[in-house]
Design a protein around this nucleic acid. Structure first.
Lengths: 154, 154
DNA sequence: ATTCATGTAACTCCATATGTTGCATGATAT
DNA sequence: ATATCATGCAACATATGGAGTTACATGAAT
């Protein structure tokens, strides 16, 4: 997986899970994502603790969605994975002694805070159901699909 | 210097340069930023090529601003250092074969593009002159300063 | 009991940013 | 002229963090 792609990766996993009616194993998800099962468990553990997904051990075990897709927004998932830093640019130091630095921080903070507010609000307007619908539409436009045919080659 | 702090660092350097009426050496700037002179030269080379600053060799050499502070915005500097990635979250892959991934990318792209537009527009409204004025105001509020006294301990 | 699946800690691997060294180039001072 | 000062730049070293991997424990279904 690329760098800084946890949110993207988790969304990918969740949508694939939504497409199944039985639990999906970490191994199966890992194959889809071209990564390691442990990585899947790692990025899903937060979402499990927050009640978005369930995991079960043993035969027939694996991961299942714990909520309706319509009740989960991108914002929920973003928070669920621990609200990682949104921006790649930031401060040199948090509490600078240098007054120049204080002025720079204040200016950047202002702009970044504004953008962050907008971005998170935007995340709140997108549900996983909407993403799934978009997915199905793209699929239909692309090619007819047979029941049981895999929808992911990545 | 911290990670992802080029913009912040460059702004810091520029404001300190603005405070001097003679060229400032990379070494002096490096001391202020607690880093290495070569790092300073590295992050300044782009700005020099774009005409925001000048560098001169030899005795009395160093860095000088090539434009009025009022004519430089945060956006200019951001572009000047090469328009680095703004966001810490992104795609798993650019041209995914998986339709699920395409839908995820499209959704994230929409939100991110929106936020990026706002952020860059915000950067355009802030001039270095405004930053410098803010710096002087903070300085005055803090403590009287003697002529020649250093204004930076970072 | 065996098999399957997750939970988790500890480790390796790797990409990237930063820091450092060394030397070439050019400008100024004496 | 020559010594000194400063940037320009390439090459290398180091540090950091994310991703991947291994190993083993736990618990559920057959």
């Amino acid at each position: 997986m690329n760098r800084d792609s946890r949110l993207s990766g988790v969304l990918h996993v969740l949508l694939h899970m939504a497409d199944q009616n039985s639990p999906v194993t970490s191994e199966a998800l890992a194959r889809m994502m071209r990564t390691n099962p442990v990585v899947i468990r790692r990025i899903m553990s937060g979402l499990r603790d927050q009640g978005y997904v369930r995991s079960e051990k043993g035969h027939g075990g694996g991961w299942t969605l714990a909520r309706d897709l319509a009740d989960i927004t991108l914002r929920d998932i973003y928070d669920g994975i621990g609200s990682p830093a949104l921006f790649a640019i930031g401060h040199r130091s948090e509490a600078p002694g240098c007054v120049v630095e204080q002025a720079v921080n204040a200016a950047l903070d202002g702009s970044l805070r504004e953008a962050q507010t907008l971005l998170l609000a935007s995340f709140e307007t997108v549900t996983l159901a909407a993403l799934s619908a978009d997915f199905r539409e793209r699929l239909a436009r692309r090619a007819p699909i047979q029941p049981g045919e895999p929808t992911c080659v990545d």
